[in-house]
Every structure is written in C-alpha cells, then in structure tokens.
Computed example of a mutant assay.
Amino acid sequence: MSVKDRLQVGVNGVLRPFGVQLVRGFSTDPLISPFLPARQTIKRATAAGLSVGDYLDNYSSEPGATADTVSAMLAASGLSEAGAVGKVLEIGPGSGRYTSRVIMALRPQTYDVYETAPDWVRYLRGEFPELTFHPADGHTLASTGSSTVDLVHAHKLLCYIPFVTAVCYLDEMARVVRPGGTAAFDLITDDCMDSQMTKTWLAEPSRGAIYSVAPRDWVLQFMAQRDLELTGSHFVPLSGGRTELLVFTRR
C-alpha cells in the first residue's frame, strides 16, 4: 500500500462515523466508468457537431433510441396530453436527454430530479432552469412525498448499479407514484439475454462486467405487491446488448 493510500485509509477511518469518505477524483473502476463525466462528454459532442443527447445515443445505443424510448413510455402510460400532468420525477437524468423530450411532450407543472453527479447537476441547472433538484443519496427519493407523482421514471441507470440498490429505487418509485400514475424504468432482464448478447459478453467479458441483470418475473411480482400493474414493455438498445423498458400503472 502506497503512502497516499495509507493516508486515505487513515483519514477515512476518522471520517467514517460522519458518513463521509475521501475518494479519488478519477477512477478506472468499470463499475463507475459507464457514468460519463459531463465536461468530457459535452466537449466530444460539440466536436462531433451533435447535441449531447444525440452523441450519447450514438455512443451507448443507436441513433434515435432516446426518442423511441420516450415514445414507448408515453404510449404505455396514457400520459400523452400536454399540460395534463402535474408532477414528473426523474431519477438520474444525467445529460437530460430524456428530460427534454418528456418536458416537450407533457409540459408538466413541475419536474423534479434526483442526480448524484455534481458535474451533471451543474449542466442541468444551466440547460433546464425549470427543474427542481432534490438531495440525492443514491438509493432513496426521501424529499418526495408518498402518492404525489404522476410519472416517475429512470433510464440507463438501474442496469449499472447493484441490484439491491435498484430494488431500493423500485420500492421508492412505487411509494411516490399516485394512484393512476406511471412508474417506468429500464433493466437488463433475463429476456434481454438473447444469443447475440450472450456471445458479445462471452467474447468481451469486460462489457458485461459493468452491468447488473435483473430477474424479470421477480421484478413484476415485486411491483405487483405494491399495486403496480405492467402496462407496456419495450427493448432499448445498449452498448453490447439491450435493456427492457418496463412501464407500470399504479392501481
């Protein structure tokens, strides 16, 4: 262990009772690297002559994937009429590529977000001054009241985090959505694991290592126990495979 590492361990030992720790400013950890840094991403999008959203579509999925995902989500939700939605909540909006399309389609009265990345929060504040930001702890929606949200959604987030953390978010989404409202999110379910995706992961194990796979039937049962009924699903392209968008309505 280097002197720097020993120092970090010692400082973190002092800070641990306060729930705080030091981390490196840059990490090559494959579990962290999929969440792209804002400055670098914006710079590359500009150099490519693309919006940040279009750049990310090309980088991690395929052109038009974001628009298709939002269209599928809204079609399954029944929340397609602009101005008829009171509150939307998005978990992990990142670049805002889904945010912008949902705002354009629904014109909600309020749009709340939970984002853990400070660099993307700064970017979002500049691009979307109408957003309401809440403190994000990475597993709850603590600032949002129960049964208060018309649409709560998350995209390209739950497939990257540990499944137990994803389950915490699913429980919270079920809590905050109102009766008749919609909860939507994408996961890598077992239905996503077709032969091509399996071949890709076997050929390049590092690709699969950054993802978390969820048991589809278990997720449906978990949501049903919280009065959420599946009303639609849609496969979404992902680098090295695909995710499944699941759309639920609260009974």
Rank of each mutant, 00 (worst) to 15 (best):
M73Y: 01
S77V: 02
L79E: 03
L79V: 08
L79W: 01
E81I: 11
A82C: 08
G83P: 01
G83S: 09
A84H: 09
G86A: 11
K87R: 15
V88H: 05
L89T: 09
E90R: 05
I91E: 05
G92M: 06
G92N: 11
G94F: 09
G94N: 10
S95W: 04
S95L: 10
G96H: 10
R97K: 15
Y98R: 02
Y98H: 09
Y98D: 05
R101S: 07
R101I: 07
R101F: 04
V102H: 02
M104P: 00
M104H: 12
A105V: 02
P108W: 02
Q109W: 03
T110P: 01
Y111S: 07
Y111T: 03
D112N: 12
D112S: 15
D112I: 07
V113H: 03
Y114N: 04
Y114F: 12
E115K: 13
E115R: 09
T116I: 12
T116V: 12
D119R: 10
W120V: 14
W120Y: 14
V121Y: 06
Y123Q: 14
L124C: 13
R125W: 07
R125T: 11
R125S: 11
G126I: 07
E127V: 13
F128V: 13
P129L: 10
T132M: 10
F133P: 04
F133G: 13
H134S: 12
H134F: 04
H134T: 12
P135E: 06
G138W: 03
H139M: 11
L141C: 12
S143M: 10
T144Y: 02
T144I: 15
G145Y: 00
G145P: 05
G145N: 13
G145L: 12
S146T: 14
S147I: 00
T148A: 13
T148M: 06
T148C: 09
V149T: 00
V149K: 04
L151W: 05
L151G: 07
V152F: 03
V152W: 03
V152E: 01
H153R: 05
H153W: 03
L157Q: 04
L158A: 09
L158E: 03
C159M: 14
C159P: 01
Y160E: 06
Y160R: 07
Y160Q: 04
F163W: 11
T165N: 08
A166R: 02
C168I: 00
Y169V: 03
L170H: 06
D171G: 14
D171H: 06
E172T: 03
E172G: 13
M173D: 03
A174E: 02
A174Q: 06
R175S: 10
V177Y: 02
R178M: 07
P179G: 09
A183D: 03
A184S: 05
A184E: 01
A184V: 01
F185M: 07
D186I: 05
D186N: 08
L187A: 10
T189K: 09
D191F: 02
C192Q: 04
C192L: 09
M193N: 09
S195L: 09
S195D: 12
S195Y: 00
M197E: 09
T198V: 14
W201G: 08
W201Q: 11
W201M: 15
W201P: 00
A203W: 00
E204D: 15
E204N: 14
E204G: 00
E204W: 05
E204L: 11
P205M: 13
S206N: 12
S206Q: 14
A209L: 10
I210S: 12
Y211L: 15
